[in-house]
């Protein structure tokens, strides 16, 4: 395979909290333009993996992004290099307005002129947000907060977007919308690493997938392939 278009490579990643290894010697990679999903049950180590990639949790192993080792690069600099994360539970600032939530994500951007264009892009994608731009983040519904969380990641103009369970707590129709939006964002050139418990939806949009169980990758393959895999069907698709 062509190694040149690997955007993220994770080698022997281990994340430990005290004596407990939440992620145990995990290796995988994501190529430019892909949607890769990491599925697994509660406590499998999915969020820990994303937090390590974003530089907000200590780890051992090696994480390279665009060919550069990310060790010792502070989290805010990683964002400046074009990698944004939509955190688990959305992480909306309830005391900031919708617009302020979006604006804060432009902290690292120097291209002030194109920022205005990107607000329009976010509002075109999520028209509800435009109507609520002066409302406090805390007053939004769960679905709107998820839109805002994705919108925020778009405002940092990322080449790579990490999403941690974007479907969590949403009604089925909203889940479909959010997954549709993710494929939309991917089509405009953003590489996606998607963490999900909703294996069915995640596998159906993913080019490739990894299955994480108690900190280890137990299966990997193309999204459609895993959708038909007996073991995956039993464990995650009920």
């Amino acid at each position: 395979m062509d190694n040149n278009n690997i955007i993220i490579s994770v080698e022997n990643l281990t994340v430990a909290y005290g004596n407990i290894k939440a992620v145990d010697d995990v290796s995988f990679e994501v190529r430019e333009g892909e949607i890769v999903t990491l599925i697994g049950a509660n406590g499998a180590g999915k969020s820990s993996t994303l937090r390590a990639i974003s530089g907000v949790t200590p780890y051992s192993g090696r994480i390279c992004y665009g060919g550069r080792d990310l060790r010792n690069i502070p989290a805010h600099q990683i964002v400046a290099r074009g990698m944004a994360q939509v955190p688990e539970g959305r992480g909306i600032f309830g005391n900031l307005t919708v617009m302020e939530n979006l604006k804060l994500a432009t902290w690292q951007r120097k291209d002030r002129e194109t920022v205005a264009k990107d607000y329009r892009r976010v509002f075109a994608l999520f028209p509800q947000l435009e109507k609520r731009q002066d409302q406090l983040g805390g007053t939004l519904s769960g679905g709107e907060q998820q839109m805002l969380a994705v919108g925020r990641a778009l405002m940092s103009r990322s080449r790579m977007m990490l999403l941690d369970e974007p479907s969590m707590g949403l009604a089925p129709v909203l889940v479909r919308d959010i997954f549709h939006t993710i494929t939309e964002i991917n089509r405009t050139g953003t590489t996606i690493l998607l963490v999900e418990q909703n294996a069915h939806m995640a596998l159906s949009i993913a080019s490739r997938a990894y299955v994480l169980e108690t900190g280890k990758i137990i299966l990997s393959g193309a999204g459609k392939e895993l959708l038909d895999n007996q073991r995956v069907r039993e464990a995650y698709l009920g």
Binding site: A75, H76, V79, A84, P87, G91, F93, A105, W107, R152
Partner: peptide, 13 residues
């Protein structure tokens, strides 16, 4: 003051 853990994920030092 709302959520310190999320702030670096937006690129804020």
């Amino acid at each position: 003051s709302w959520d310190k853990a999320v702030v670096p994920l937006l690129g804020v030092p």
